[in-house]
Write a protein that binds this DNA or RNA. Structure first.
Length: 485
RNA sequence: GUCCCCAUCGUCCAGAGGCCCAGGACGCGGCCCUUUCAAGGCCGAAACACGGGUUCGAAUCCCGUUGGGGACGCCA
């Protein structure tokens, strides 16, 4: 049977890297086995959920290339896929549990419970619900119902143990003594997570629940619910968490955690995808740089490691650089256009007459850029005008006596020569020799003339790409600058 | 406090009893290339948390300790 998995985010925040990786593992598993990827929005927390967050999450998934077969915007035969549209299902199920003796009405108020909890904590003890309402006499219940007293519905946890097999960790056993009679339906008749997740996973015929390790301790409660509802339990796979450098759960204070933030900073989705996939999982061999298809082909839940993983930004940068290096010219062009346009450096001719030239420039930039914005900055001398001369560059490289004259001589020589790299280099070296200076003096000065900076792609490649007019103009400008200095 | 999970280089992983005085990658150091900066190539430093078992033999299995993480809500 084809597996059915789901990613079920709560729209109380943007898609963060931890959630993205969970979604990614689910997706890889579904695609690997020809299964179905379901996207479900868990918006039962009315207070904190918002539509804006829903779109944000969908955008994040789409950016990463994680698509879904059933869910928002695509529909499917097991919907609705928003929990807020399924409230009747949860209520009916909760009442059914009560009717069948698996759950009971609890009239304790949140205030009372908080008080008891705080008292216990003050004593340094944990607190679990004291089952005050578990065995209320029928008349008592009838009376309170008659008075329409607000009440929640709690699951009646039986004595014993619950065990389940986790696909990444093996057998896990919980003693019911450590489980409390948890609420399944709140007094406002909204379901809690435990109920809604089980009802939905049953309704949506989910076969494999792949989620964060923080859900392990919730699992026995849900297994109990499956049992009470007479449903088989799905397979579980709890994936490790992503940690910050301080080994604490990754959060805002560690820097960017929103997936779309990485898009904004200039990371490639394929790099992010590759990096995230390898964070806590490996194909079993030494491969690291992988395409989406290779990852799908190699994926297995067994390859997920048990320990938490620290998010390593340097390695993400490396992945990004490697994927940048492997992008086709056209793909790179597509991703660069909006950024160049935003910087006022885009010409429509880059897709037409100057297309080949554009790609040559980009080839020079590629090995030097780890993120997209660097193409804009380093490409500025090619696509626009050079920056103002960097004071450090001026101080370090323009101090040679007679430099203005040397540069004038270079300009004169360049005026009459072919503009290929080899000739450009040969001519420059000849000028340097005839004037009795080291070639480096002219090279560095010319680089500053072209870019305003001390670092750039190879000088002669650059000169050739810039063309005679621009090279002459920029050398003249430097000469003027030197003479006025 | 109770319960659960985890434990190989700084970091991410490989390793499913002998192939391991532990392999790859990022990062770091050095060298080469070189007009700068990268890229690239080569070399190097760097780990089986600790203690008991089991076994002819343990990074690999078991127990304990320690350490880290997670969960204990009418949040998801």
């Amino acid at each position: 049977m084809a597996p059915r998995v789901r990613f079920a985010p709560s729209p109380t925040g943007y898609l963060h890297v931890g959630g993205a990786r969970t979604a990614l593992f689910n997706w890889l598993f579904a695609r690997r086995h020809g299964g179905v990827m379901v996207l479900r929005i868990e918006d039962t927390d009315v207070e904190r959920s918002s539509d804006e967050m829903v779109t944000g999450i969908l955008d994040g998934l789409r950016w990463l290339g994680i698509d879904w077969d059933e869910g928002p915007e695509v529909g499917g035969g097991h919907g609705p896929y928003f929990q807020s549209e399924r409230l009747d299902r949860y209520r009916a199920t909760a009442e059914r549990l009560v009717a069948e003796g698996h759950a009971y009405y609890c009239y304790c108020t949140p205030e009372q419970l908080n008080q008891k909890r705080e008292q216990a904590q003050a004593r340094g003890e944990g607190w679990t619900y004291d089952r005050a309402c578990r065995d209320l006499p029928d008349e008592e219940i009838a009376r309170r119902e008659g008075e329409r007293q607000p009440r929640a519905i709690r699951f009646k946890v039986p004595d014993g143990q619950t065990e389940f097999t986790d696909l990444v960790r093996g057998r896990i056993v919980f003693d019911h003594a450590n489980l409390e009679d948890f609420v399944v339906l709140r007094s406002d008749s909204h379901p809690t997570y435990h109920l809604s997740v089980v009802v939905d996973d049953v309704d949506m015929a989910i076969t494999h629940v792949v989620r964060g390790e923080d859900h392990i301790s919730n699992t026995p409660k849900q297994v109990l619910l499956y049992g009470a509802l007479g449903q088989p339990t799905p397979a579980f796979a709890h994936v490790p968490l992503i940690l910050g450098p301080d080994k604490k759960r990754l959060s805002k204070r560690h820097g960017a955690t929103s997936v779309m933030e990485y898009e904004r900073i200039g990371y490639l989705p394929e790099a992010m995808f590759n990096f995230l996939a390898l964070l806590g999982w490996s194909p079993g061999d030494d491969r690291e740089l992988m395409t989406r298809d290779e990852l799908v082909a190699a994926f297995s839940l067994e390859g997920i490691s048990g320990g938490n993983a620290v998010f390593n930004p340097e390695k993400l940068d490396w992945f990004n650089h490697q994927h940048l290096l492997r992008l086709s010219d056209d793909e790179l062009l597509d991703r660069l256009e909006p950024r160049l346009a935003a910087a006022g450096l885009w010409q429509h001719t880059f897709r037409g007459a100057e297309r080949a030239w554009f790609f040559k420039v980009v080839d020079q930039l590629r090995p030097r850029c780890k993120k997209l914005p660097e193409f804009v900055e380093q490409g500025r001398p090619f696509f626009g005008e050079p920056d103002a001369y960097d004071p450090d560059a001026v101080a370090k490289r323009l101090g040679e006596p007679g430099l203005a004259d040397h540069m004038r001589a270079l300009a004169a020589a360049y005026a009459g020569c072919a503009f290929d790299e080899a000739t450009l280099e040969q001519v420059l070296r000849q000028v340097a020799e005839s004037r009795g200076v080291k070639a480096g003096v002219l090279i560095h000065a010319t680089r500053i003339a072209m870019t305003g900076r001390m670092v750039s792609p190879g000088l002669f490649e650059m000169l050739s790409l810039l063309g005679k007019d621009r090279v002459e103009r920029r050398i003249e400008r430097l000469v003027t600058f030197l003479e006025e200095k």
